[in-house]
């Protein structure tokens, strides 16, 4: 049980981090080059079915597939990758809104004082730090609650790739609705808890 919670936290936490690591530079480039249509593209993908992401990744990772030789299928790392891809549209779309506003407010001031564009973007990020972390918490919530990726590229293997959401699905499939509901409640509480923890950590 505790193991399940810790594994879920770890998998979805790492996925969120990975997604942030590539989404932030992407958002910087989008703002710098004013690539509006790319933002619209990501906005449209925010609700992409998790099963679709799982299946597409499966088609890359299965042993007879292009990246099969990496041996990543049915590992926690595969779930991390899939969830990172899954939450990227949400991160890009929300980070863009936040950073764009801060850039117009503070970044352009930096520019008029002769700072570089990158410097301006960093200042914008610093000024909107709290909202930006809110986006990251949202991405974590989507990752920890998703089912399709974890089921398809994780495989729901007991003690190895079983996460809270796949355990909920399994209990439901077994007709153990009570256990599934309990786990679901814990998952929701955890997700809300992380959201608050981020805010509280910032207030101090």
């Amino acid at each position: 049980m505790i193991e399940l919670v810790l594994r879920s936290l770890w998998i979805s936490g790492t996925a969120t981090l990975l997604a942030t690591a590539w989404s932030l530079p992407l958002v910087f480039i989008i703002i710098k080059k004013n690539l509006r249509s790319l933002v619209t593209f990501f906005e449209g993908l925010v609700g992409v079915p998790t099963v679709l992401v799982g299946l597409l990744l499966y088609d890359l990772l299965c042993p007879r597939c292009p990246l099969g030789s990496l041996g990543l299928l049915y590992t926690p790392q595969a779930i991390v990758l899939g969830e990172a891809v899954l939450v990227t549209p949400l991160l890009v779309a929300t980070l863009h809104t936040t950073l764009k506003r801060a850039y117009e407010e503070f970044g352009e001031l930096v520019l008029t004082f002769g700072g570089s564009e990158w410097r301006a973007l960093l200042v914008a990020l610093k000024e909107s730090w709290e909202e930006a972390l809110g986006s990251v918490a949202m991405a974590f919530s989507r990752a920890v609650g998703e089912l399709g990726v974890a089921l398809i590229v994780g495989g729901n293997i007991a003690g190895y790739t079983r996460t809270m959401s796949t355990a909920i699905a399994l209990y439901t499939q077994m007709g153990e609705f009570e256990k599934a509901t309990q786990l679901g409640a814990i998952l929701a509480a955890l997700s809300v808890g992380v959201s608050f923890a981020v805010k509280v950590a910032l207030k101090r």
């Binding site: 299965c62 042993p63 007879r64 099969g68 729901n156 499939q173």
Partner: peptide
């Protein structure tokens, strides 16, 4: 043994893919 618990249709598909 690590079990992937699915319906027979999916179980056979996973076998076909060498998964």
């Amino acid at each position: 043994p690590e079990f992937l618990v699915v319906g027979s249709g999916q179980a056979l598909r996973l076998a076909k893919d060498g998964a």
